[in-house]
Amino acid sequence: MITVNHHGPVPPFEQIREQLGDLIRSGTLNSGHRLPSIRQLAGDLRLAAGTVARAYTELESAGLITTSRTAGTRVCAGHGFAEEVQHAADSFATAAQRNGLTLEEALGAVRTQWPLNSEPVDDVDGTQRPRTA
């Protein structure tokens, strides 16, 4: 299930692209899963077909989905998060909800931590590598 906020600051096609991308990467939509037709999704979301088509085109360009006339639109394999990431995301979401954080606040915590973890650190043999938790 995806939800589009018609009055939100993010364009509807971007909301669709983002949500579908997240669902595919998190493994909620498995490889080979057939997505609804552009017409069905556009009708259900009360959007123009072109809006959904644009989201599908961008997802296809990113290699997340593939469209064919016979098989319809299907999720491509090999784009899911690594198991370690998925597990960490699950633990983090549980902890954030337990502490009463909103989604934005939780994402803010990740945003703050992200550049800190990306700073390279010196390894014991003198080479540099990204810092890990």
Partner: peptide, 11 residues
């Protein structure tokens, strides 16, 4: 027209 609309991802 509603502020939000949801859709299933099953054809």
């Amino acid at each position: 027209a509603q502020p939000t609309a949801s859709a299933t991802l099953t054809p």
